[in-house]
């Protein structure tokens, strides 16, 4: 009962913040609200007992993403420009997509259903054999780093590839881009 109240409160605030982010014109405020959105998501993950995911959401979603968005803001404009054209087309697209997604959830197994396909495949083996085969208390780590080590390697390479892409786009020598004479306030992201 208590958890339901907490869940509903958190989800309510998520919706409120999402609407606020869409409505607000000041991009600095929108970025900060998105950080709060991530932190609330992390709280929801905690109530779901997914502390590792919550940790990642709090550090990456609320921390690094916010900083990178602010760094981008310091290079561009702070106030959002108005949208030209009618707004009902995007509203229609969003509504149809949302309704389709909600319709699709009816085919999904119920939340916490032990007979759900995800709990029938390899997960029972991970949970039962982890203590014997790997012998570390945190099963999430044993799945992440050992059973699914190949996937995690892929993720690490993805992070590295993101760096290569950013350096190719932004890390060029200073003399080559002509934007260097537009004097922003010092400290870039400050």
């Amino acid at each position: 009962m208590m958890l339901t109240i907490i869940d509903l409160t958190l989800l309510f605030f998520l919706v409120v913040i999402a609407i606020a982010v869409v409505r607000i014109k000041d991009l600095f405020a929108a970025t900060m609200l998105l950080g709060i959105y991530s932190l609330l998501s992390a709280s929801i993950f905690v109530t779901l007992d997914a502390v590792d995911v919550a940790f990642t959401e709090a550090s990456v979603g609320a921390g690094i993403s916010t900083i990178l968005a602010l760094s981008t803001l310091s290079l561009t404009a702070r106030i959002e420009k108005g949208h030209p054209g009618p707004t009902w087309i995007p509203i229609l697209v969003c509504a149809v997509t949302g309704l389709t997604l909600i319709y699709a959830t009816f085919d999904m197994p119920w939340f916490g259903d032990p007979d759900a396909p995800i709990h029938q495949h390899v997960a029972p083996h991970y949970l039962e054999a982890s203590a014997e085969e790997i012998d570390i208390p945190n099963v999430v780590t044993s799945v992440l780093a050992s059973y699914r080590g190949f996937d995690t390697f892929g993720e690490t390479v993805v992070v590295f590839t993101a760096l290569v892409a950013v350096l190719l786009l932004l890390g060029g020598r200073k003399g080559e881009d002509n934007e260097s004479n537009q004097n922003k306030d010092e400290g870039g992201a400050s």
């Binding site: 690094i64 900083i67 990178l68 760094s71 981008t72 310091s74 290079l75 992070v159 590295f160 993101a162 760096l163 950013v166 350096l167 932004l170 890390g171 200073k174 934007e179 260097s180 004479n181 004097n183 922003k184 306030d185 010092e186 400290g187 870039g188 992201a189």
Partner: peptide, 16 residues
């Protein structure tokens, strides 16, 4: 990677 991406973004604002 995270520090370098931050450097890349933040350095754009600083000319020299």
């Amino acid at each position: 990677v995270m520090i370098l991406i931050f450097y890349a973004f933040a350095s754009r604002g600083e000319p020299d």
